[in-house]
């Protein structure tokens, strides 16, 4: 009887709703469409087969991501490549305080604050901008990058990111705040304040 209820809850349609999030999660880790697709497929199949193990305590998506992580780990074990995303450590409170000093005075005022950006929408259409964007994203400390990506790229909500990373809600806010401060500054220095007189001619 329990099994029937579980299976009902995990109908193909219900599982399929989570496919886009799972796929983005897998793609960001594996950086390969086909491998990501396989991992998601295996995950949904495994979830389907193990439907009776799903007790509904965790959210379905957390449960699915748990399975997906195993599939991705299996992939890394099979391949020679090293795991590129180490597991998260708790944020070091002292280190975090130092981090904020980079942006604010002890009174909490900006050191050198955000200046206005010239036509950011236009940047989205330029190939060169995306190279800079990726560099800035990759330059975030690993745990900060993971939190930012789970939230903004994979599309998990705050609670899910906390469960995934073991961060408290307060630490999550602080981490996202810093990630935005860092990304913003990096984009300002490398793109928006960087004179690009020959940008128009780069396509030649």
């Amino acid at each position: 009887m329990t099994k029937n209820i579980a299976e009902q809850r995990l109908s193909e349609q219900v599982l399929a709703e989570h496919r886009p999030v799972l796929f983005r999660y897998a793609l960001l880790q594996l950086r390969d469409h086909e491998l990501a697709d396989d991992a998601v497929q295996e995950t949904l199949l495994a979830a389907w087969q193990a439907a009776s193990n799903f007790e509904g305590k965790a959210s379905l998506r957390s449960w699915l991501i748990g399975i997906l992580k195993h599939k991705i780990a299996d992939h890394w074990r099979r391949s020679v490549r090293e795991v590129v995303t180490p597991e998260l450590d708790q944020i070091d409170a002292d280190k975090s305080a130092v981090d904020e000093d980079d942006f604010f005075t002890s009174n909490g005022e900006w050191h050198s604050g955000p200046s206005a950006w010239n036509d950011p929408e236009a940047a989205l259409k330029q190939q060169e901008f995306w190279i800079i964007y990726e560099t800035c994203q990759d330059n975030l400390p690993p745990q900060m990058a993971k939190v930012f990506m789970l939230r903004e790229l994979v599309g998990l909500d705050a609670d899910e990111v906390c469960r995934e990373t073991g961060l408290s809600t307060a630490n999550y806010w602080v981490t996202m705040h810093r990630a935005r401060l860092r990304l913003r500054e990096c984009l300002e220095i490398r793109w928006f304040n960087n004179p690009k007189p020959t940008k128009e001619n780069h396509h030649a």
Partner: peptide, 24 residues
């Protein structure tokens, strides 16, 4: 300055979503 931070943070969210779409 904070107004710029607000606008630019929204832009960064938008860029992050666009980045994912491009990756896909």
């Amino acid at each position: 300055r904070c107004r710029n931070f607000q606008t630019q943070s929204k832009f960064i969210s938008k860029a992050a979503h666009r980045f994912t779409e491009q990756l896909e």
